[in-house]
Amino acid sequence: MLVTVIIFLREVLEAALILSVLLAVSFQFKLSRKWIFPALSIGFLGATISAYFLGDISNLLEGTGQEVMNSTLLITMCFLINIICIWIWQCLNNNQAAFSTLLAKNIKKILILDVSIAIMHEGSELSIYSYSLIQMHDNHLSLILGGGLGLGIGASLGAIIYYLLINMQKRTLLITAIAILILISAGMASQAALYLIQSGWLPSQLPLWDTSQIISERSIVGQLLYALIGYEATPSPLQILFYFAVIIICISSIILTTKTKRHN
């Protein structure tokens, strides 16, 4: 049952983190948080469908379909998170921007898309795992208890982060949110690079460093850091490149879009 708890928690953690940060930002801007319902439904539907077809998806592109799909989802999320960060920064500097700009008018759609992709990406493995437990017959109790516990711990951590954030001062909250979102998306980009290396689309290289003796990826700290900043003990040079490229692109796009606004 412990295995089930860990698998569920690992997958839920990152989606819960993104969800709680985006909910806290919506709360700060007095934006209705009802977008969570379509986001959750589309996410669960997407997870079930992609899990059902995973065998066929995997066979595509000479057996690399699974990796190409995962990295596409991850890169799409990086792009959406970047747009969300630009929106938060615009609102931080100009209160009216939260409602009036073109970006603000479409922000709910972007939030829904981002969260549903996050749930689809994390949830598809959970559906496959749950299905395998059901297939093995004798494990219903372990699935219900373990899965429930894993989901519960993940959701509680998300709730703690949400309440910590909404009790912060507006400026601190928004800057913290942008920082967390940028780090999460950098981790996603590094993960996307890893999938492409695993499937042979990008060249493999020796890892740049090895910190597994200091913080093991198996440890709880390692798992938390993985969800938060995409921690890897032995990253390849390409992963590091993707990681910092996303941070630089995100920060510079935020600065560039605010500058053009001021000139207007």
């Binding site: 995997s58 699974q66 695993q198 890892p207 597994s212 093991s216 990826e217 198996r218 890897e232 032995t234």
Partner: peptide
């Protein structure tokens, strides 16, 4: 973890 690989 050591090989940095995961595939269903």
């Amino acid at each position: 973890y050591e090989l940095n690989r995961e595939k269903v």
